[in-house]
Design a protein around this nucleic acid. Structure first.
Ligand SMILES: [Zn+2]
Ligand SMILES: [Zn+2]
Ligand SMILES: [Zn+2]
Ligand SMILES: [Zn+2]
Lengths: 148, 148
DNA sequence: CGTTTTATTGATACTTGATATCAATTAGGA
DNA sequence: TCCTAATTGATATCAAGTATCAATAAAACG
């Protein structure tokens, strides 16, 4: 979450669709603008609620395109709809606040090294991994988020 | 179903329900027997299909009880119903074959140590984590599993 | 610019996974 | 055995997400 290093490789959502050869339409623009304006994780239904002028099908389709293009991460939530967050760095993992649901990204070279070293211990060929860290975020720890 | 090595701390499914003060009924027994007989991960719908004599609601309720008791792991699958597997060891992670869906368990002290050490790098208080390793299992690598 | 072509949209219906309801049944103790 | 509370399961309902397809809008063409 520090940014002393150069800008993260934030993939522009519009560019992501363009690169897939998809047309720029007003419905899609509305969805992308909504996603970029609030830079927090969201569910598909949240977008639908926030964008009543855009059809449900289009919201779902646009999300699928973005996930497909690697511009959005889809992260599975036990007991509930998956959440989506803008993919700011190439490979990374997520922190999820168990209280407010806030999603963050992190990268850690040691984690990746350990994952790679696991090859010897595991039957079969490793092709990928996924990891989520559950936290109580600083906001929630400081009691800022009381009203539910 | 081999058990030449010592039994892991397998939590008996019946005991798990008993400890929750739940009655032993024929419907529940059918579900538990089905889960234990095939020691592979499964979905709720698979159980329903395999146990037409047990009501759908009961299947789902029984699974929920077992997850609640810690006897089953619920693991979220992107694009699909969650899978369940018997929890044989206290804290562990899963390997999932990307080809056939086979689920395995593993534990690795280094992984846990790294996860613990992550505290300094992450905003907020860590309360847990989840991790899945995606593999191509040996079965699938050896081409044994061709027919789909 | 107007025309043509093709992708996109979105209301609707549907699918799937899962839960709520509640009368009938059953387990287990007195 | 009888009593009572827990359990069951058919059914309805909910929720997330997809398929359909006529109407619409974007880009390409001239
Ligand atoms: Zn929080
Ligand atoms: Zn990683
Ligand atoms: Zn496999
Ligand atoms: Zn762990």
């Amino acid at each position: 979450m520090t940014s002393d290093t150069a800008n993260p490789i934030e993939i522009d959502l519009f560019t992501a669709l363009e690169d897939k050869g998809l047309r720029k339409t007003s419905a899609r623009s509305a969805v992308l603008t909504r996603i970029e304006s609030a830079n927090d994780a969201f569910t598909a239904e949240q977008l639908c609620r926030d964008l009543p002028e855009v059809g449900r099908a289009t919201v779902y389709r646009t999300i699928r395109h973005l996930v497909d293009a690697g511009a959005l991460c889809k992260l599975p939530i036990l007991d509930g709809a998956p959440m989506y967050s803008i993919a700011r760095v190439e490979h990374h993992h997520h922190t999820i606040c168990s209280k407010c649901g806030a999603v963050g990204e992190f990268r850690h070279s040691t984690v990746e090294r350990v994952m790679r070293s696991l090859g010897k211990e595991i039957d079969g060929e490793i092709v990928g991994h996924r990891m989520e860290i559950f936290i109580i975020c600083n906001q929630c720890l400081s009691g800022a988020n009381d009203g539910g």
